[in-house]
């Protein structure tokens, strides 16, 4: 991302605006297509549009919202719904924990990071990990906030607008819309990897993701993350140490 149009490269506003421009990027467009699908899903389930817009802003992460809607539809107790959503969202913690050291400076206040962290979901995370290296450190929080806040607000409005308009898509279209997300995530993680351990974690995570989905579908994401991620880290580190000795 270049900044040739900007008058003042040193202001937070400048980097916030550059982040906003990320709305016209491939990942943002793919996410918006996914939200069109989500709007169709909730409209079919007859969840009132106000509640759909509210949860888009408050929950933001798409997988968590799908689980929340499922709980609402089945009439689950609020504690049961909380448990299901929270288990699906544990992944937020390492994602945010990996992002924070990349974007903060020694003077970034924690309250600001707590607010900005709300806009982390898979798409924003992948986008930020890919582009934040091109932004000077002092501008990174503003850059991420500009992207995350714009993307969230746009999708709240988008969901409200298309809710009444989308009927059922032809199966080929909805199938392709669905498949965009995993394919985009794969390419983006590969491109944004700056460390060899990322490739290892991606490969092992895909294999373990399948394995645990078969043998422990309730906790598959969590188990894959902790076991697969740790194995990837250990393996890569052993290789690194062996290379260091030579």
């Amino acid at each position: 991302m270049t900044a040739e149009t900007a008058p003042d490269h040193n202001s937070h506003t400048h980097w916030f605006l550059i982040g906003m421009r990320g709305l016209f990027s491939l990942p943002a467009i793919i996410l918006m297509l996914s939200f069109v699908g989500f709007a169709a899903f909730t409209a079919e389930a007859k969840i009132p549009v106000g509640q759909v817009m509210f949860m888009t802003g408050m929950v933001w992460a798409l997988p968590a919202k799908v689980i929340l809607v499922g709980s609402m539809l089945s009439g689950a107790h609020i504690a049961t719904a909380f448990l299901a959503v929270t288990l699906s969202s544990v992944r937020m913690m390492p994602m945010v924990a990996a992002l924070i050291p990349e974007i903060r400076t020694s003077r970034t206040p924690t309250w600001l990071l707590l607010i900005v962290s709300h806009f982390v979901a898979i798409t924003a995370w992948v986008f930020a990990m890919e582009h934040v290296r091109d932004v000077p450190r002092y501008g990174r929080v503003a850059f991420f906030a500009g992207f995350g806040i714009t993307l969230t607000l746009t999708n709240i409005v988008l969901v409200g607008l298309v809710y009444g308009a989308v009927s059922e898509f032809p199966p080929i279209v909805s199938g392709c819309l669905f498949f965009l997300t995993p394919v985009y995530f794969l390419t983006s993680i590969w491109i944004s990897a700056r460390h060899r351990v990322i490739y290892w974690a991606l490969g092992i995570g895909l294999a373990f993701g399948y394995l645990f989905a078969v043998i422990a579908p309730e906790y598959d994401i969590l188990l894959t993350g902790i076991i697969g991620g740790t194995l990837a880290w250990l393996g890569e580190r052993m290789l690194r140490q062996r290379e260091g000795k030579r």
Binding site: S174, F178, W200, L202, I204, G228, G229
Partner: peptide, 29 residues
Amino acid sequence: EVLNWVRAVATALVAAVIAKLIFFPTGTL
């Protein structure tokens, strides 16, 4: 080194979500 581990865990978690979408899709697929 801790950040390296956190990165690996975060990436493996996202990879698990990807694998689920590919191997066990919902809807039309």
